[in-house]
Computed example of a mutant assay.
Amino acid sequence: MNKLLLGALLLGALLFLQQEDWLAPAQVEQSQSDSVLAQAFRDQRSDLQVRGEGRVVKVLPDDLEGSRHQRFILELGSGQTLLVAHNIDLAPRIEGLRAGDRVEFYGEYEWNAKGGVLHWTHRDPRGRHPAGWLRHEGRTYQ
């Protein structure tokens, strides 16, 4: 009986430790994302699919030339800034977005001298490009 109890306790401890390990990849992924974006910026690299998260530092007026885009600037954990150009002809606008809000993203990075631009944060109607998205306050926009 004692061996059974000891086995159950060891199994419980092992499962608890594995659960803690399951939480770690998201934290590692975020710092890896910031590192990948920092390297892309240094190398002036574009056409890179990236996933990450940042804090809104400024909400800009919409770009209304051609396809309409909601625009805002994110600051990553590394301090790098990223202009987000979210196509609101193909995906819903993030209503009520304010400076200080956190936004997760998956899209395509394009280099520019100010930190870069993130676009393709929506589904491709032709199905030729990976579907991107933005996530704000638990809601996904694509």
Score class of each variant (00 low, 15 high):
Met1Trp: 12
Met1His: 11
Met1Ser: 13
Asn2Cys: 07
Asn2Ser: 14
Leu4Tyr: 10
Leu6Ala: 12
Leu6Gly: 03
Leu6Asn: 12
Leu9Thr: 09
Leu10Trp: 08
Leu11Arg: 03
Gly12Arg: 07
Leu14Arg: 09
Leu17Cys: 06
Gln19Asp: 11
Asp21Thr: 12
Trp22Gln: 12
Leu23Tyr: 11
Leu23Trp: 09
Leu23Val: 09
Ala24His: 12
Pro25Gly: 07
Gln30Gly: 01
Gln30His: 08
Ser31Thr: 14
Ser31Lys: 13
Gln32Leu: 15
Val36Met: 10
Leu37Ala: 01
Leu37Phe: 03
Leu37Asn: 00
Ala38Thr: 14
Ala38Val: 14
Ala38Met: 10
Gln39Gly: 03
Phe41His: 07
Arg45Gln: 15
Gln49Ser: 13
Gln49Glu: 13
Val50Tyr: 02
Arg51Leu: 06
Arg51Glu: 10
Arg51Gly: 04
Arg51Asn: 06
Gly52Arg: 00
Arg55Pro: 03
Val56Pro: 04
Val57Ile: 15
Val57Gly: 05
Val59Phe: 04
Leu60Met: 12
Pro61Lys: 08
Asp62Cys: 04
Asp62Ser: 10
Asp63Arg: 01
Asp63Pro: 00
Glu65Phe: 12
Glu65Gln: 15
Gly66Arg: 09
Ser67Tyr: 10
Arg68Val: 04
Gln70Lys: 08
Arg71Cys: 07
Arg71Met: 11
Phe72Trp: 01
Phe72Leu: 02
Glu75Ser: 10
Leu76Glu: 02
Gly77Ile: 08
Ser78Leu: 03
Ser78Phe: 02
Gln80Leu: 15
Gln80Lys: 09
Gln80Phe: 01
Gln80Glu: 10
Thr81Trp: 02
Leu82Arg: 00
Leu82Gln: 04
Leu83Tyr: 00
Val84Gly: 01
Ala85Phe: 00
Ala85Met: 06
Ala85Asn: 02
Asn87Lys: 05
Asn87Ser: 06
Ile88Arg: 02
Ile88Gly: 00
Asp89Val: 03
Leu90Trp: 07
Pro92Asn: 07
Arg93Gln: 15
Arg93Trp: 06
Arg93Cys: 07
Ile94Lys: 00
Glu95Lys: 15
Leu97Arg: 01
Arg98Val: 11
Arg98His: 13
Arg98Phe: 09
Ala99Asp: 12
Val103Arg: 00
Glu104Asp: 07
Glu104Leu: 11
Phe105Leu: 05
Tyr106Met: 08
Gly107Cys: 04
Glu108Phe: 02
Glu110His: 11
Glu110Phe: 10
Asn112Gln: 06
Ala113Asp: 13
Ala113Glu: 14
Ala113Gly: 13
Ala113Met: 07
Lys114Cys: 00
Lys114Asp: 15
Gly115Asp: 06
Val117Asn: 04
Leu118His: 03
His119Met: 04
Thr121Met: 05
Thr121His: 03
Asp124Met: 08
Gly127Pro: 09
Arg128Glu: 12
Arg128Thr: 11
Arg128Asn: 11
Ala131Leu: 03
Gly132Ser: 09
Trp133Phe: 13
Leu134Thr: 03
Leu134Ile: 08
Leu134Tyr: 02
Glu137Ala: 13
Arg139Lys: 13
Arg139Thr: 14
Thr140Trp: 02
Tyr141Glu: 01
Tyr141Met: 02
Gln142Met: 05
Gln142Glu: 09
